[in-house]
Write a protein that binds this DNA or RNA. Structure first.
Lengths: 169, 169
DNA sequence: ACTCGATTTCATTTTTTATTGAAATAGATG
DNA sequence: CATCTATTTCAATAAAAAATGAAATCGAGT
């Protein structure tokens, strides 16, 4: 081996076609549920990796910064999308993708959708009170629309437990 | 009436508490499905308005620009969230909120979620081919994970027609 | 077919969001 | 307990997305 070359290069090693496809796919999914590109990149890389990767490896392969890697892994851990595995003789944390894909959908529903529906129903309560103090015809319009929206939201919310069960099954 | 004041003020007239609540609520919902703030503002205003509003009115009440109003209405029309009504003796288009709330959810599922699931399934096909040309243990890992993801995606996609029916019912 | 107000378009600007990387912190190892 | 390396934090920077408004287009009324 020529002098100056190490076993593990410091330069970014090119991603395989498989890795690129996986990364692009997960960037797309994750954007849909409001997660940033770097989070999708990390998960996409881990998804097709047969070995656990350290943060260093992730930075190097993806060409992202320390901060992005650290924060991305934090997000992925928080939704249970990655877990760290112990690697004997290495101080660094090593990560593998959790393959329970439903976790993403579930996290989105429980952490984004559900709270927003709840907040909307609260607001509707406030708005119904405000509408009560209005002039007759405006009041009637507002009350009717609010009632209608309330019913739709309640109905939608009532379906969420079923949806969650379906997704994890 | 004092001199210099017109029937319709050019200055932005303050939003009522009801309007503010409605606007904030819809900004929240619309962000969730990837639509910008100005789109939520316009719909929120129209939702509690008992009369149809012209683009002028919308700009003035919300304090947004011509471009934002025009583009926001374009988006809302494209998802069927507003419709224009004819106002005799006025050349301007006047808009009312379409109250079929399910349209937003439906548009999101059909225009964002479904295409992304389809695209992901395509990519999985590509990735399965790419994996076939890999070294044995990596191939096994990749194939197994891709198979698992494919099943989950197919199952999720098969549920969408039911979900759509539920939402519009 | 001209005029004039209404609306759309789009290059520029502003705002928001994501990324970077140096410094602070944590925590394992001798 | 001192010294490492690994990781997190966060202020600064870069990138992306949204808003602005002048100019172009449209289209009803004359």
């Amino acid at each position: 081996m020529p002098l100056g070359l190490k076993e593990t290069a410091l330069e970014t090693s090119a991603l395989s076609e498989l890795e690129v496809e996986s990364i692009e796919m997960f960037i797309g999914f994750f954007k849909l549920i409001g997660l940033q590109k770097s989070v999708g990149e990390i998960y996409g890389l881990l998804f097709v990796s047969s070995r656990a990767l350290a943060m260093d490896d992730i930075m190097e392969r993806l060409g992202i910064s320390l901060g992005a890697a650290s924060q991305g892994l934090k997000v992925l851990r928080s939704v249970g999308a990655v877990k760290s595995v112990y690697m004997p003789g290495d101080r660094r944390d090593h990560y593998v993708a959790d393959l329970e894909l439903s976790k993403f959908a579930t996290a989105f529903i429980q952490e984004e959708l559900k709270p927003r529906l709840d907040r909307a129903l609260e607001r509707i309560g406030t708005m119904e009170s405000l509408a009560s103090g209005m002039e007759s015809s405006d009041r009637a319009t507002a009350k009717e629309r609010l009632e209608r929206l309330k019913h739709w939201l309640e109905r939608t919310e009532s379906m969420l437990p079923w949806l969650l069960k379906f997704l994890v099954k």
